[in-house]
Design a protein around this nucleic acid. Sequence first.
DNA 1: AATTAGCACTCGAACGGGTAGAGTGCTAAA
DNA 2: TTTAGCACTCTACCCGTTCGAGTGCTAATT
Lengths: 345, 345
Amino acid sequence: MTPTLDDRGAQVLRLVVEDYIETAEPVGSRTISKKMGQVLSPATIRNIMADLEETGYLCQPHTSAGRIPTGAGFRYYINYLLARRELARSERDLLQKVTVEGVSGADDVVRHASRLLSNLSRHACVVVVSRYSHQALRSISLLRASSDRILLVAVLQGGWVQHRLIEEDAGLTTEELEKISGYLNEMAVGLTLPQLRVRILNEMRKEKARYDRLMRKALLLGSKALADSVPGEVYIEGRANILEQPEFAEDFQKLKRILHAFEEKSVILQLLDAALESDAIQVSIGSENPVEGLPDISVVASGYHQGETAMGSIGLIGPIRMDYSRVIPLVEYTAHLLSSVLEHR
Amino acid sequence: MTPTLDDRGAQVLRLVVEDYIETAEPVGSRTISKKMGQVLSPATIRNIMADLEETGYLCQPHTSAGRIPTGAGFRYYINYLLARRELARSERDLLQKVTVEGVSGADDVVRHASRLLSNLSRHACVVVVSRYSHQALRSISLLRASSDRILLVAVLQGGWVQHRLIEEDAGLTTEELEKISGYLNEMAVGLTLPQLRVRILNEMRKEKARYDRLMRKALLLGSKALADSVPGEVYIEGRANILEQPEFAEDFQKLKRILHAFEEKSVILQLLDAALESDAIQVSIGSENPVEGLPDISVVASGYHQGETAMGSIGLIGPIRMDYSRVIPLVEYTAHLLSSVLEHR
DNA sequence: AATTAGCACTCGAACGGGTAGAGTGCTAAA
DNA sequence: TTTAGCACTCTACCCGTTCGAGTGCTAATT
């Protein structure tokens, strides 16, 4: 599929991409010639660049400017030319420390990781926790919250806690509540929330004929609590990093589109969707990303999991001109870290 | 203190402010003359405006431009000249509906309100929930979260739920846990979280001499859970509205400062701090606000409460040139709404 | 056959002058 | 006290010029 380049072409492409990542300016033949130690003259480079332009890897913003990489150029770079710059020991330690230390719930873990990742990368970091619903239940408890409200607390496999208030007028005594709790627990443990929901609906059909008032109550409360599906959470840290990118500072329209996107949970979810199920890094460059109307950003994301279950994804959002050689190892490491920290919860 | 203006001066000031709020452009004498139905000629208006400039209510960005109001000008306008534009019935209904409907926890209530308020006002809306710690406890429960973690769930007066995971290696049985729960509950009910903390520390001192193992455990767990103070929450909705303001679209530096501020919880807390204790609307104009380095924004905020307890504040953040006549009633109504909705939780 | 020097060409950014227009302040008349 | 009149000021905008970076092409060189 992708046309393969000869060595020289590849090297020039690599240098152009890397220079452009660094400067955000079109790259000229002279610059590349210098970077190669003047093994080839600017004129030769020009010929090579003209070829690269024909192949679709480079383009010119206008006739008398240098070249900038196209989406395809970046794609080729990432697929074949990228030299990963692994994290420094100190960075790994920092991430590890911050992620583990002084945080209690699994929610805190991902938030801390996100914050730090955005700081280290100087890009906006997004974490999606979408798969509460894939985690098995460890326990369910019902607590009285007020005279007409009951609090259902669900502890999931691995540190996630969900709670929900249910309206409930029939004055249940503490003992009854405990009994109901017990019923629900018996049904629930080991199931996921959606599975529990289905089970409750089934039981309700059977139960109609039966007599146990409390069991009926248990089913009713359970079905109320699970009526709406479990929402995912989206945390975004370091949005303001977007402002530091010259391409967005100069083009206000692009900036607006991006910052608007950050306000819409659904858009963010779409952007990171591809990474959800996979443990491998997903990179979507510019118009490759699944959201129409955001052709100017790249997303580098990876799923993270808890035991066998995919739990969500973490990713960076920045300009197409991201420093992939650094950003990819960063995201990768953080995702692995999350997975391993969460495993022991 | 504040110099009082004669009728004409006040009217001109009012018209200048209102025109400037609308257009974001310096206002000329001709415009004002027209707005007054040409009762006075531009030349006269110029004299009046020159007076207003001397008094410090207006200023000129440069010699041959119209006038724009100073901070003091806005302050005078808000204190003495503002004509409130009350909300339409439909808006009140909408706010009421969205705030009450389909939400369960008190947290949801404020978030929904915030979102809607930002939409109605077209400004960024901030809600602070800082006073969990002022709410009395209704109940405390301990649940086993995993083999080495216990989940403490605290239900506060009025729909707020706090939970925290505590590391705990000594394998406690369910019965023991229940008993400990009971101990804590006895101590806790009716106290606020900080009060409970103090009480636990006191009891610990006394308890040292005594013998009850479970009671000691209860105190230990309680003190662990309450070690760090209760954090407040800050929700920001509609940040992107800032981008629609011409003054920020044109001045990138200002924009950056504001969006950076949104990333720092502490800055936001400072901005809304004055509103916390008070039920009355607080307006801080430009450099009046307590945060250095944000002289270009105004904050219109009000506290909201639950029963007798101040719970937090809700406010709008926008350019100095906000439409106060509309924004003030909006915030006021929403804050009252929050207070009344939360009261019945 | 590949490379390169040389050169004409193109385009954008930066600079400067000139103009139009909005708005002012001042003065003198009403 | 108000206002008409007028000179003045300043900005925004347009336009032409220049400068420089970078190109493509061609012909000479290796």
